[in-house]
Design a protein around this nucleic acid. Structure first.
Length: 554
RNA sequence: GCGCCUGUAGCUCAGCUGGAUAGAGCAACGGACUUCUAAUCCGUAGGUCGCAGGUUCGAAUCCUGCCAGGCGUACCA
């Protein structure tokens, strides 16, 4: 609808120019807004004010010239107004909104989809938690944002791949092995002080127990190095399997699990480092190897090989991001915890140095989650190994509530996640509020069937009965869904869908309380059914993008 | 110190990349179930958009400087 108005305005401006009502043929981009206040119409444009200096005319005169030249054969516009500074306000004929309904019925699950991505290959990498412990709540937020983002991009015509990067190499894996091995030895009665720098959680003991069951005491006879290595591999594999399960119960499945170690095994890390050395992008100082990230806009240069010969995490990350582009992705999106933001300039530097444009790389920073219970902070200490895992949260409040709540904030604002609130079944909890719409409409349909009432289907005459303000309001809201999806993809902000759904839900509940769908008037009932079924479809459509279910009953 | 993020109603947050009189939910108060799920709705009240300048027809939104909070600033990941 907005686009239609845009075109009408543009054509009117051209007509006006041809007829000599407007001197200049220079037209700015037409901007059409939806005013907040009802009395200001359904759409407004600022074109007259923007053109004032070019046309050397008063905005009011320009507005008059444009209105005079509007050609609206279908009668979409019921009224136009010129408002004080020079806005032109358009009032849409109520009946002009209705054609969105058959579109929703036809397109169903695909309503709102588009091809703005033009099939270009895009990768979303998220969660990528170290395989040294279970996922916690913060990872859940990253998972919810990443998965929703991937769904939205797919819906907008991108060829999306979801990837999980496994940090299965380097020091933290060694620490994991040591932690498990020490617990293992404790199981055989050794009296060992468990070091602070080892992983403290109970899951480490559990893993040690599993190894004991499997291997008996044989590890004690091996060289420590070998035993630690075995424990590390065993534990990492086990933990990853657990992470995979947790994500699955959260409704998140990845297309690809990418191993950091594989970058070393295939020589990709060495290759890219050698390439940078040969191009003098890496130099030696104090026995370490430094990447000239400063030359690419970072604050200072960064170490890639330490003076003990070990590569840093950054070294494999250089190879990793290069490899993503080598695999043919036109754009890559990383979803990180906000505490990693300082890492962005150096990754961009590495991408530029590897010969790709840093503009093809985006990072979505997800702020931290404060876990609360009844308003009180839940104590969490990773060091002491006392934390509520994502799995705990899912089993307590359910995947739907968790996912939805994670998406009720802009990803760059910190989020309070209250476990008690997430379980509440009231207006305080937005998940139920939205899902309830779907359940209510399902219920209406069931009741209708019992009474032998069928949907009318698209019948312009019947549907044109829908002219209650609450109905027009609902239809307008339905019509704006595709734009919401598009903006959500463009700005990489999944929460826009969440807010849209809450808004649509509110419009529906208002309508529901004021008007009955199933009435004695057959024509009206059919038309209203047609409307609410469209609402149901859009609610389901949006919830699906967010990874939340749409229940038939609640 | 420097860098990034945040600051909007008592609380939790939106605000469509510069538009007109800044919006929701919660909490408070007052109402609505013999009718399709009251897990809902309607109404009342609540604001110097952190502060101060600047840009312009027009600023919560853009720029600059402060103030407050969070995070980062490793040869950790």
């Amino acid at each position: 609808m907005k686009q239609k108005i845009k075109n009408l305005i543009l054509k009117a401006a051209l007509n006006a120019h041809e007829k000599g009502d407007l001197p200049s043929s220079e037209f700015p981009d037409v901007e059409v807004d939806t005013p907040r206040i009802e009395s200001q119409g359904d759409f407004s444009t600022n074109i007259a004010m923007v053109m004032a200096s070019v046309q050397k005319m008063q905005p009011k005169r320009i507005a008059e010239a444009i209105i005079k030249n509007i050609d609206d054969p279908k009668g979409i516009i019921s009224k136009t107004e010129i408002a004080v500074p020079g806005f032109i306000n358009f009032f849409i004929n109520n009946l002009a909104w209705h054609p969105v309904l058959p579109r929703i019925h036809e397109e169903g699950d695909m309503y709102g989809s588009s091809d703005i991505g033009k099939g270009s290959k895009i990768q979303v990498e998220f969660v990528s938690s170290n395989p040294t412990g279970p996922l916690h709540v913060g990872h859940g937020r990253g998972a919810a944002v990443g998965d929703a983002m991937a769904n939205i991009l797919l819906f907008c015509g991108y060829d999306v791949e979801k990837e999980y990067y496994i940090n299965d190499s380097g020091r933290q894996i060694n620490t994991l092995g040591r932690s498990v091995f020490l617990r293992y030895r404790q199981l055989f009665g050794e009296n060992i002080d468990f070091p602070d720098d080892c992983y403290q959680g109970d899951y480490i003991r559990d893993l040690a127990g599993l190894i004991k069951e499997d291997k008996g005491r044989t590890l004690l006879d091996q060289k420590e190095e070998e035993a630690v290595h075995y424990c590390a591999q065993f534990a990492a594999k086990n933990i990853i399997a657990g992470i995979r399960d947790d994500l699955k119960s959260f409704g998140v499945e990845f297309d690809n699990w990418f191993s950091e170690q594989s970058l070393y095994d295939s020589g990709k890390v060495d290759n890219v480092l050698n390439d940078f050395r040969s191009r003098n992008i890496i130099y030696e100082k104090d026995g370490a190897h430094w990447f000239r990230t400063k030359d690419f806009g970072d604050e200072k240069d960064r170490v890639v090989v330490r003076n003990n010969g070990q590569t840093t995490y950054f070294a494999s990350d250089i190879a990793y991001h290069k490899d993503k582009f080598d695999r043919g992705f036109e754009r890559i999106i990383d979803i990180w915890g906000a505490d990693h933001h300082g890492y962005i300039p150096r990754i961009k530097a590495s991408i530029e140095a590897a010969g790709y444009s840093k503009d093809r790389f985006d990072v979505i920073l997800v702020q931290l989650v404060n876990l609360l219970r009844g308003g009180q902070p839940v104590a969490m200490s990773t060091r002491a190994g006392e934390f509520i895992t994502l799995a705990d949260v899912i089993s307590e409040v359910g995947s739907d509530a968790a996912r939805f709540i994670f998406l009720t904030r802009h990803h760059e604002s910190p989020l309070d996640f209250d476990l008690e609130l997430a379980k509440k079944k009231t207006n305080e909890n937005p998940v139920f509020y939205v899902q309830y719409v779907h359940a209510r409409i399902s219920s209406i349909i069931r009741k209708g069937r019992e009474k032998g009432i069928k949907e009318t289907g698209w019948d312009e005459k019947a549907v044109s009965i829908l002219k209650e303000p609450e109905e027009i309001n609902l239809i307008k809201s339905l019509g704006s869904y595709p734009e919401t999806v598009r903006l959500s993809a463009e700005f990489m902000e999944p929460h826009r869908i969440t807010f849209y759904l809450m808004n649509l839900a509110s419009s529906f509940h208002t309508y529901y309380n004021k008007h009955r769908v199933l009435t004695d008037d057959q024509l009206l009932t059919g038309a209203r059914l047609y409307l609410v079924v469209a609402v149901k479809k859009v609610i389901k459509n949006g919830l699906t993008l967010l990874g939340v279910s749409a229940p038939e009953k609640m």
